[in-house]
């Protein structure tokens, strides 16, 4: 359960970061205004990239997270 939760959390955080940063934090679409040349939040593209990385990292989390049962074994 923990594995699945953490993986899902990682995946959703990643996807969420992508969506939020891409649509709401990077530079607005359109090129006719000064403001459109700046991201609404500086380093927003970094968040998008982090989002992509987190999304794929969820597979690593899924596979690498040690088993609870296993750790309980002697």
């Amino acid at each position: 359960m923990r594995r699945r939760t953490l993986t899902l959390l990682c995946l959703l955080t990643g996807l969420g970061l992508i969506v939020v940063s891409y649509f709401f934090l990077t530079a607005p679409w359109g090129s006719d205004r000064v403001g459109n040349s700046n991201p609404r939040l500086e380093y927003a593209p970094l968040l998008t990239v982090l989002g992509v990385i987190l999304t794929f990292a969820s597979a690593v989390v899924y596979e690498l997270l040690p088993d609870k049962d296993k750790s309980g074994e002697p």
């Binding site: 990077t26 090129s31 459109n36 991201p39 500086e42 380093y43 593209p45 970094l46 990292a57």
Partner: peptide, 25 residues
Amino acid sequence: LFRYARPQSPFFGTFVLVISGYLFA
């Protein structure tokens, strides 16, 4: 690129998808 990259530049796709996403995946 991390600081200012703009989604409407085709470069953004290259940068985010190809380099970061694709490479990391």
